[in-house]
């Protein structure tokens, strides 16, 4: 069974009220969600808290999800909102988040081929819009249409952001010595 079918089946079982399916659904998507949130906010501790908030929102909103096969864009839309709320709070108390971005930049560079870890390390220096489109498209493997749905912009805008993000990331990684 493909991951999409498995995910759709778990969503339907959750909507039916089969409690054990919630744990399975969270088990299937938690890593992807956590990576996205972690890459967006920088701090792993904040990512833990935000990911938990997202799962609570998922449990509360799942009965209203009409298309179980659209779970991934729906999940990341909720996550994006949680990240935006966190950012708003961080702006009000800037001293609490001052070190967060440094966590990402601290990830060391390695030799050889670019790994997911290295790309994630470079993401910290990208502007938020470019960072999130890169995470959704490359690290979470969402389609252009799904990215557009999550971000609330037309697919053309997603393409241009992706182009800009790749170029900027390439420059960042080149500066760090990843050019081959």
């Amino acid at each position: 069974m493909s991951e999409d079918s498995r995910s759709g089946l778990l969503v339907v079982r959750c909507q039916l009220g089969e409690r054990e399916a919630f744990g399975e659904l969270a088990g299937l998507w938690h890593d992807a969600l956590w990576r996205y949130v972690r890459a967006m906010v920088g701090s792993p501790h904040v990512a833990d808290d935000l990911a938990q908030d997202v799962w609570v929102a998922v449990a509360r909103g799942l009965p209203r999800l009409r298309e179980p096969d659209r779970f991934a864009p729906w999940l990341f839309t909720i996550a994006r909102r949680a990240v935006a709320d966190h950012r708003r709070e961080a702006y009000r108390a800037p001293q609490t988040s001052a070190g967060d971005e440094a966590d990402v930049a601290d990830n060391g560079s390695l030799n050889g081929l670019l790994t997911t870890m290295e790309i994630e390390a470079g993401l910290g220096e990208l502007p938020p819009l470019e960072r999130e489109v890169l995470i959704l498209f490359h690290l979470q493997d969402l389609s252009l249409a799904s990215c557009a749905e999550v971000l609330g912009v037309p697919p053309g805008t997603v393409k241009s952001r992706l182009h800009r993000a790749r170029r900027t990331l390439r420059e960042i990684l080149t500066e760090r010595g990843h050019e081959r």
Partner: peptide, 21 residues
């Protein structure tokens, strides 16, 4: 920092409480 961590036990408990019948 970027590594996947699996689902923490705390989250499992929170989720179970959240969906309680």
């Amino acid at each position: 920092h970027g590594a996947p961590r699996g689902m923490p036990a705390e989250l499992e408990r929170a989720l179970a409480a959240e969906v309680s019948l």
